[in-house]
């Protein structure tokens, strides 16, 4: 067990040490104290990256809305319930790099069906070269991210919905509650914990996504879609500046730590109620 913890936490500790150095993959390491952190805080591009990360993280909201709607639709479905909910899982079961490839094709400005259809119907004059516009690129990766990851929340919400006893609804009906009231007074309170858990987990994971957005835009144009994860990756992989890369990671950790705390508290609370 202790060995296990060592595997998990040793790299982290070493990373902190590394972040205080100019640390190339091979070659001389120099101790520079907090210069990496200072550099980041004084570097304009770093704030572009934080902004991109927050915008990309907002796809959590979209994911929640889609997942909630889908779960509510499915839970009372009589026919093909299992089949339909399995279909809903498809975006999530594909490797993100695979779904990224699929959307790169669908949204290809020259040959992809979506933009071709729009130009054919005269809604667009030319192909839309979304990869070269910062605003469009970040919108596209955020939407594709929402499409890819919403089924995770769907699984959690659906499982919880199914565990709400039918009697609750019947009682509410007897007291004359309409559809909206039943949703607000019965469904939503029961879902509260599940939603908090799903949202915090997904926010943490969305804030630290790399593979799919990196694949779709390469972090560009410029640094417009370089979320912190991509920035970290670019420093480590392209420039071999390992120390700086880890320093970016520390800021990412700070950004997600709020959600980590919320998740742990919620988890602890639900375990205590379970014991009672």
């Amino acid at each position: 067990m202790l060995a296990l913890l060592l595997i998990l936490w040793l790299p982290f500790t070493r990373g902190i040490w590394m972040s205080l150095h100019e640390w190339p993959v091979v070659g001389e390491r120099t101790f520079i104290g907090f210069d990496n952190y200072e550099f980041l805080l004084g570097w304009d591009t770093f704030y572009i990256s934080i902004k991109a990360t927050i915008i990309y993280g907002l796809s959590t909201v979209l994911q929640l809305v889609i997942a909630l709607v889908a779960a509510l639709l499915i839970v009372n479905q009589k026919w093909f319930k299992n089949f339909t909910s399995s279909l809903f899982l498809l975006p999530y079961t594909l490797p993100p790099v695979v779904s990224g490839t699929v959307w790169l094709y669908l949204l290809d400005p020259n040959f992809g069906p979506i933009l071709t259809a729009l130009t054919d119907y005269g809604l667009l004059e030319n192909g839309l070269f979304w990869r070269s516009s910062g605003d469009l690129a970040i919108t596209v990766i955020t939407l594709v991210g929402a499409w890819t990851f919403w089924p995770f929340m769907f699984i959690i919400i659906l499982a919880t919905l199914q565990s709400i006893p039918e009697e609750h609804y019947e009682a509410a009906k007897i007291y004359g509650a309409n559809r909206v009231q039943r949703f607000l007074k019965v469904t939503l309170p029961q879902l509260k914990s599940a939603i908090i858990v799903a949202v915090t987990l997904r926010t943490i994971w969305n804030l630290s996504k790399v593979a799919q957005p990196l694949q779709m835009t390469g972090g560009g144009p410029g640094y417009d879609t370089s979320v912190l994860g991509i920035l970290l990756y670019r420093f480590a992989s392209d420039n071999g500046r390992m120390g700086l890369s880890f320093a970016v990671g520390i800021f990412l950790l700070l950004l997600t730590s709020v959600f980590i705390v919320v998740f742990i508290r919620e988890n602890r609370r639900s375990q205590q109620t379970e014991l009672k």
């Binding site: 943490i204 630290s208 990412l252 950790l253």
Partner: peptide, 12 residues
């Protein structure tokens, strides 16, 4: 919970 990607530098 914590973002594993920050470990790529030390692990590499």
């Amino acid at each position: 919970l914590f973002p594993h990607i920050l470990l790529i530098a030390p692990i590499t």
